[in-house]
Amino acid sequence: MTSVIQCHELGRYYGQVVGLNELTTELPGGVVGLVGPNGAGKSTLLRLIVGEIRPSRGWIKVLGEEPFGNRELYRRIGFCPQQDALYEDMSGYEIVRLLLRLGGFSPQESRTRAEQALERLTMTARMHDRVATYSKGMRQRIRIAQSIAHDPAFLVLDEPMSGLDPLGRREVLELLRALGQGGTHVLFSSHILYEVEHLTAEIVLIHRGRLLAKGALPEVRALLSMHPRRVELGARRARDLARALIGCEEVVSVRVGATAEAEDRLSIETRAVGPFFQRLNALAAGERFGITALRSADASLEAVFDYLIA
């Protein structure tokens, strides 16, 4: 598949803060998930892609063109920004129609397309109400609607699931899947790997402004599974539980709380989270260790990424 995005030593700095650092890569077409913890540089990359900001160094090409201020390119891309910003005193329909008019569509076609886009986001019933009266999820639907209304060849979405309820998430995932199947290139960011998995196997991982991994999700998962994960437990018989766990092959290390106040705490490192929890279940069922708390301390992507860059 041909590259939709090409960038070479792409960097973007906000004064002393590095937003993106020497990113050299090509992103394929199709549906691609851009994954990284908060502050990883996802939004910066997306803003560079849609030409909202310029690179501080290096270059980026989107659909073969430099994006900043490129009006011809804007006809072919749709952008759903992360920020919850809309014209509060306008209705969702008015906003989508206005942006379609600015996209070059006639008044009649703008009306038709706005209605269709809002219908796809199940906003028909409320589309003539003022945005100020919308819930967070409805506002997100309007942002997505304006990004797809002109049938862009390349759709860029920054955290498109934020603010949506589970049903809304499913609907948007289905919509993005359908768009991808229809030939639209979709690049969307998320800090929740679970969401990305449901939509695509093609992901790009970035962290602290750097590209960490790129490719099919199973490959990246394999990379992640090589690194231990930490689980924290609270148990009344913490030392007994520690003794029981030490011999298990999934367990890399066990540490009992160092202070008297924390002696009922256990910190466990494991390379295989699934088998570890099965083992823990079996142990807890067989003997009363008085487990009071369980937390996968570094299940977040940020922690996983820390492992990767360590």
Binding site: G51, R71, F79, P81, Q83, I95
Partner: peptide
């Protein structure tokens, strides 16, 4: 300030 400028900047119009 309202951060709505993004919508206008990503339309095929002269700024």
């Amino acid at each position: 300030e309202d951060r709505t400028i993004t919508y206008l900047f990503t339309r095929p119009i002269p700024r």
